[in-house]
Design a binder for these strands. Structure first.
Length: 184
DNA sequence: TGTCCGATTGGT
DNA sequence: CCAATCGGACAG
């Protein structure tokens, strides 16, 4: 199921291994699920198929990198089978002890919260649209298993920032690791 | 071409 | 609560 994938993303390490000096490794503490064409909150609602959403219709295991709000990039993961898909997961990551994200977010003062959310995360990891449609089984960006998270540690709640989504607004498709996240 | 809006964020 | 900020979607 879609939300099973979202839940399983928790605790995974997102690794972006570009040709740059740093290799950032971040464990996911939060995820959200968007259910393809039916979900009013999904960009692919109604089967909308444009340049921007095209990647969502690809095969599961592909990255989607979207530009949102004129300011931020967002990293998502496609789930489901080709054509059928139109589904994605959005993840939030927390810094690991000793990481070097602060160096990337530069000018502003940075605390642990400043780069854990999707927009700042992409800045920190250097994720942009160039990674759109990247194969997560290849060598640019991938997910690695870590220690599992006990099921009782995983909380769920409604997704945020989608007030327009009508009855889909209340679906409990946001997941987070209670032992790890700053936000609930 | 013009207008409207957003899967965000940080500051009032 | 609200502004920042601009590409994408869509109407015309």
């Amino acid at each position: 199921m879609l939300w099973t994938v979202a839940r399983d993303l928790l605790g995974k390490l997102l690794v972006v291994s570009p040709q740059t000096v740093n290799e950032f490794r971040e464990p996911s503490s939060k995820s959200k699920a968007y259910r393809g064409p039916h979900d009013r909150a999904a960009h692919s609602y109604g089967g909308r198929r444009t340049k921007r959403t095209e990647t969502m219709y690809g095969i599961g295991g592909t990255a989607i990198c979207l530009f949102v709000y004129g300011m931020y990039n967002q990293f998502n993961v496609v789930t489901g089978s080709r054509g059928n898909s139109a589904r994605s997961i959005d993840s939030r990551l927390e810094p690991v002890e000793g990481d070097r994200l602060d160096a990337q977010t530069s000018s502003r003062p940075t605390g642990p919260k400043s780069h854990q959310r999707p927009g700042k995360l992409c800045i920190a990891l250097g994720i942009d649209r160039k990674l759109d449609a990247a194969d997560l089984l290849a060598e640019r960006v991938w997910l690695e298993a870590q220690d599992g998270i006990p099921r009782f540690r995983i909380a769920t709640g409604p997704r945020i920032g989608i007030d327009y989504a009508e009855e889909w607004k209340d679906k409990p498709w946001r997941f987070w690791n209670q032992g790890q996240s700053f936000y609930q």
